[in-house]
């Protein structure tokens, strides 16, 4: 894997985003098609996973949710980033690391909170829960449908636990719905949304910029709830 050090820092201002994206847009979309072909019918299991998460959140039973999200992240990190995307760009190895690292943190959270979750935990505000629900529904349902609609192809769309953006948006949404989640955990989904938005921008596919929008809105919402919490306590 080449080091980032091969870039001459003084030249950075002369680079455009697309200079760091060694792929054509159609080739990138083909990755989604190939990933979907490879994964089918795992999509059904992933759908079951999403339903399980929502049911568990509704029942205030949070055990297993972080572990399930971690599995989804590892599946995408390996099967999309390392298996497919890294053939096209060495940066995918770093992207996979983001997914694996977040998965590790979620497993740690699962382990540390194991005894807290069945008992009484400070419940989170309905607003935060609704926000998280909206974001995860967007990532798990509306984003895949939007991509399929815009591209006129369901085969090349994004899905939870299959492709990167849908997975990360769903994970980020669920994190908002979980109590006792360390704020630091939001950094990696935020980072991914920024990176992915840069990729879509470099590929001139502007619907993908919704990731920047959602990253910004999530960040603003997170800060706002934090400040509100501080003021009231």
């Amino acid at each position: 894997m080449p080091a980032l050090g091969i870039l001459n820092v003084s030249d950075l201002s002369t680079y455009a985003v697309e200079d760091f994206i060694p792929i054509d847009r159609e080739v990138f979309f083909r990755l989604f098609e190939r990933q979907n072909e490879f994964a089918w019918p795992f999509h059904l299991l992933a759908l079951g996973g999403m339903v399980f998460v929502f049911v568990q959140v509704y029942r205030q039973q949070f055990r297993f949710i972080p572990a399930l999200l971690a599995v989804a992240l590892v599946v995408v990190g390996y099967s999309f980033h390392l298996r497919l995307f890294s053939e096209l760009s060495w940066t995918a190895n770093y992207f996979a690391a983001i997914y694996f690292f977040l998965a590790g943190l979620l497993l740690l959270t699962e382990a540390l909170c194991w005894n807290k979750w069945p008992g009484k935990v400070d419940s989170i505000s309905p607003l935060r829960c609704n926000f998280g629900m909206g974001l995860s529904l967007f990532g798990g349902v509306f984003y895949p449908l939007t991509v399929a609609f815009v591209r006129d192809s369901i085969a090349g769309s994004e899905f939870f636990s299959i492709t990167p953006d849908a997975t990360m948006l769903f994970v980020m949404g669920v994190l908002f719905m979980l109590p006792v989640i360390h704020r630091g955990l939001f950094v990696l989904p935020f980072l991914w949304c920024v990176i992915s938005g840069i990729i879509w921008y470099g590929l001139d596919w502007y619907p993908g910029l919704v990731l920047w929008l959602l990253a910004g809105v999530s960040c603003a919402f997170g800060l706002w709830t934090m400040l509100r919490h501080r003021e009231s306590s």
């Binding site: 994206i21 060694p22 190939r34």
Partner: peptide, 13 residues
């Protein structure tokens, strides 16, 4: 071959 030939192992491409 920048971008245009970077198609990975995709047989079709």
């Amino acid at each position: 071959t920048w971008q245009t030939f970077n198609v990975g192992s995709d047989e079709k491409l």
